[in-house]
């Protein structure tokens, strides 16, 4: 347990969509930190085989830090974390979480905010909405989901947001046309996307054709680390070797072997886990290092990136 982890109690569990469960977390002692819209926490899940750590957006109103709420989608090819949350965690259980961190804060100087959520990607926007309403910001929410699996909060959102709310249920053959969504937007518009990589890429590609500047596009992709071929990692300082399996990340394998690596987002965005590499070929999968930095092959983000070679020597 890292020194600043917070012990929380699961005060309530609710099924908010066929595949999504919501957990209300309260402090066991003292109080929880206030937080900013778009924040997430890393939840530690002590499974039987190993400890899972996943980042989840806080979906409560940031003005109310009496409890945190998170929502977890049961992943089709879960690596263990979401299954643990769905099957093991009950009301009254205690969990360890990190303090909130924010890598997806609204651009308050924008004149128009377009929020684009897919499935469980609605979660960060749940904390945006109350603050945007308080600030009387101009926004619209576009929500893509499959009602047989996801679509959490759609009814309350429709009621609260009225004409600012647009839903697209692909189980009812409703599609969101990205080109139409982005067309004819005025200066000062910013778009925020939380969803799978494919959706983010679609928006980026349409925006580029339309001549949008890159910096008005904000996205958060908390995709779980993708599997890859197994490899061996060696620590240069001690010679210790660690095996990285097909379905675990380098960071997870290091943690399992009790090699401490600072980390924050566990999704290749924040840069906290950057680790120097002495030997071996890196398969970069992060959004943090620049193209030049990646080409140097001397630094790896172990939360998502892996090795091309069979062996990677870390300079730690």
């Amino acid at each position: 347990m890292s020194t600043d982890q917070i012990k929380v109690r699961v005060a309530a569990v609710a099924q908010v969509a066929p595949m999504i469960r919501e957990f209300t977390l309260t402090a066991v002692t003292g109080s929880l930190y206030p937080f900013s819209p778009g924040s997430h926490v890393v939840v530690e899940m002590p499974g039987e085989q190993k400890i899972y750590r996943n980042a989840y957006s806080l979906l409560s109103d940031s003005h109310d830090a009496s409890a945190y709420r998170i929502a977890v989608r049961l992943q089709d090819n879960s690596r263990g974390g979401s299954v643990f949350m769905h099957q093991q965690v009950k009301e009254g259980d205690e969990l360890l979480i990190s303090p909130p961190a924010n890598l997806f804060i609204p651009q308050w100087n924008a004149q128009k905010h377009i929020l684009l959520a897919a499935g469980v990607g609605i979660t960060p926007f749940m904390s945006y909405l109350p603050e945007m309403q308080r600030r009387q910001a101009d926004f619209e929410l576009h929500y893509l989901f499959r009602s047989k699996q996801t679509g959490a909060y759609q009814l309350e959102l429709a009621e609260q947001l009225g004409q600012r709310f647009f839903s697209y249920d692909s189980d009812q053959a409703q599609r969101c046309n990205i080109s139409e969504l982005l067309a004819d937007r005025p200066l000062g518009t910013h778009i925020y996307i939380c969803g799978p990589e494919g959706l983010i890429k679609d928006v980026q590609s349409v925006a580029e054709q339309l001549g949008w500047p890159d910096s008005v596009i904000h996205f958060e992709e908390f995709a779980a680390p993708k599997p890859g071929k197994p490899f061996t990692v060696e620590l240069k300082s001690t010679g210790k070797t660690v095996q990285v399996g097909e379905s675990e990340s380098l960071l997870e394998a290091l943690e399992e072997a009790e090699v401490a690596v600072p980390n924050l987002c566990r999704g290749g965005v924040c840069g906290q886990c950057a680790t120097p590499v002495a030997e071996g070929e890196i398969e970069h999968r992060d959004n943090y290092l620049s193209v030049d930095e990646k080409a140097r092959q001397d630094c790896v983000m172990p939360c998502v990136s892996r090795a091309h070679s069979d062996r990677l020597v870390l300079d730690i």
């Binding site: 004819d184 937007r185 005025p186 200066l187 518009t189 001549g211 949008w212």
Partner: peptide
């Protein structure tokens, strides 16, 4: 002028 221009303006 800028109030009337599209996002895609340089």
């Amino acid at each position: 002028l800028l109030g009337e221009m599209p996002l895609s303006t340089t």
